[in-house]
């Protein structure tokens, strides 16, 4: 009763989610533990497989930078982002202009309707 959220259309309970998370983590740990028994730490089994190439010393060379994340998403929505970047163009007077424009629109809507 301390954890139930009633929305007026139904309800939702924190405990059920916590129980679900507990079961899920139990299964995850069980699966992890039932892995291969012949694994030994500190042998060749620890080495990273990097498509047969030499693994770079520095982790920086094999990590994906933030700019590359969601490359496809941004590529698809390029036209949308072109418009948006032209709005966020860093000109202080444009920012003021958008403010004045929205004041004018809000005032006109409220007064005329």
């Amino acid at each position: 009763m301390w954890t139930k959220v009633v929305t007026g259309f139904g309800y939702w309970d924190v405990y059920s989610w916590l129980i679900f998370l507990a079961i899920a983590s139990f299964f995850t740990l069980w699966l992890r533990n039932s892995g291969r028994q012949d694994y030994k730490e500190g042998t060749y089994q620890d080495e990273i497989y990097f498509s047969g190439n030499d693994v770079p010393e520095d982790g920086q060379d094999i990590s994906v930078p933030a700019d590359s994340a969601y490359w496809g998403f941004i590529k698809v929505f390029r036209p949308y982002y072109d418009v948006m970047l032209s709005v966020h163009n860093g000109l202080a007077q444009d920012y003021l202009g958008y403010f004045v424009l929205s004041i004018a629109i809000i005032t006109a809507l409220i007064v005329l309707l």
């Binding site: 966020h88 958008y98 929205s102 004041i103 409220i110």
Partner: peptide, 19 residues
């Protein structure tokens, strides 16, 4: 009312004024 709404919407950040 319109002035109060637009000015306070700027201060809290709503679409064309959040820049």
């Amino acid at each position: 009312l319109a002035f109060l709404i637009s000015a306070l919407a700027l201060k809290c950040g709503a679409f064309p004024m959040y820049l």
